[in-house]
Amino acid sequence: MTGIVSKRLEDELRDGPEVSPELDRLMRNAREASDFLKAVSHENRLLLLCLLAERERSVTELENILSLRQPTVSQQLARLRLDDLVSTRRDGKTVYYSLADEDVRRLISVIYDIFCGAKED
């Protein structure tokens, strides 16, 4: 099995306590990953992201699919928007939500494959 961190970083960690540029980058990326995982760790937010991975949807449509009240859906969408995981498009009075980028779609796809895909027994 290959290592997750680079050989160079492993060597730098072994050589001394000072923070290398590569370790500093790894730490910043870990913070970003942690923030992302916190955002998707809520059941309703994860469900919203799964539904948006299929296609763009309105708030009303999401409310109906999940049988949740509008304030609940809007609150969770606001959090996802704050974390730059979803984007919006307005058409008259209707606001449509979609995934913000392909990275979000890829992660939701992996989560779906692990937890919802066909499992061999």
Rank of each mutant, 00 (worst) to 15 (best):
R57H: 08
R14Q: 13
L48A: 02
D121Y: 03
T60I: 07
Q76D: 11
S87L: 10
L51S: 08
T88Q: 11
E12Q: 14
V110T: 14
Q76T: 08
N64W: 12
R105H: 04
L47T: 01
N44Q: 10
E18D: 06
V59P: 05
E61A: 13
V110L: 10
T72A: 11
L62D: 07
I114A: 04
L80M: 12
V5L: 13
P21N: 08
E63G: 03
Y96M: 04
A118Y: 06
E18N: 13
G92V: 00
P21Q: 04
D121H: 08
I114Q: 07
G92S: 03
E61R: 14
A100Q: 03
I65Q: 07
V73C: 08
S34N: 05
Y112L: 07
R57V: 01
E56A: 09
G3F: 06
H42C: 09
Q75T: 04
N44G: 09
Y112A: 10
T94S: 03
P21F: 11
E32R: 11
L49F: 04
L52V: 04
I65W: 06
Q76G: 06
K7S: 14
N64Q: 15
E22V: 05
K7I: 11
L52I: 03
E120C: 13
S109T: 05
S34Y: 15
L80V: 10
D11T: 02
L80C: 13
L47I: 00
L82I: 02
K7H: 14
Q76I: 05
I108P: 03
L66Q: 06
L77A: 01
R89S: 08
L9F: 02
D15H: 12
D35P: 00
A78N: 11
Q76F: 00
D101N: 12
E22C: 06
R31W: 03
S67W: 06
K7P: 15
V104M: 12
R57M: 13
S87W: 02
R31A: 11
S20R: 15
K38N: 02
L80S: 13
K38V: 00
K93V: 05
E32M: 14
L47D: 08
Y97Q: 04
R57E: 08
E18R: 10
C116H: 12
M1W: 01
E43K: 14
E54M: 06
D91K: 09
E102Y: 03
C116G: 06
L48S: 07
K93L: 07
R25A: 10
A33E: 13
R8T: 14
E43F: 12
T94P: 00
S58M: 02
E102T: 00
L52R: 05
A53Y: 00
Q75K: 13
L13F: 02
C50G: 14
R106C: 07
E120D: 12
R31N: 11
L23D: 01
V5C: 10
S67K: 13
